[in-house]
Amino acid sequence: MAASDDNGITPAFKNKGNFYEYFETYIKGYLKKDVRMFGDSLKYLKEYAQTDYLATKAVTEQFCKGFREFMDNHPNLNGETPYDFSAKFKKVIEQAVRDKLFIVSPA
């Protein structure tokens, strides 16, 4: 669910935002050693969504659940890796909530 202003109306720019761009901006500002895991999480997100543009409004609870299942069943991911990538994705989602891209976390 996209964020809304005080009157409950979602600003058009937030409906049309590309979530990949938001994710990439988050990664550029992240300075800790595990930054590569965010990049890998984004890579698998793009593989799951199979699109070059992911509208912020398309990132729903169902989408997030599907992404987690996709990673759990991915042949190149095993052990704790799907969990770790999911945790990085959720961290970006939580920041997006603080930045008011979402009213509540879809993850």
Rank of each mutant, 00 (worst) to 15 (best):
P75S: 14
D72V: 01
Y83G: 10
I103Y: 09
T60Y: 03
V92Q: 01
K88T: 08
M71N: 12
N73D: 06
P82L: 09
F85D: 06
R68S: 13
F70L: 01
V59I: 09
E94L: 05
A96L: 13
F63V: 06
F70C: 02
R68A: 15
I93T: 02
I103H: 03
T81H: 01
R98I: 05
K91E: 07
K91N: 07
N73L: 05
L77Q: 10
T60K: 07
K65I: 10
L101N: 11
A96R: 15
D84K: 11
F89C: 10
M71C: 05
V59A: 05
A96T: 11
D99P: 12
T60F: 05
A87G: 14
P75V: 00
K65M: 11
V97P: 09
I103V: 13
D84H: 02
N78L: 07
F89T: 01
K90M: 12
C64F: 07
L77A: 14
T81N: 09
D84L: 11
N78C: 03
H74L: 08
M71P: 00
T81F: 13
E69K: 11
F63W: 15
N78M: 15
A87M: 13
Y83K: 10
N78Q: 14
V97L: 14
F102N: 08
E94F: 08
F85Q: 05
L77V: 14
D72S: 05
K100C: 02
E80C: 02
K91P: 03
D84C: 14
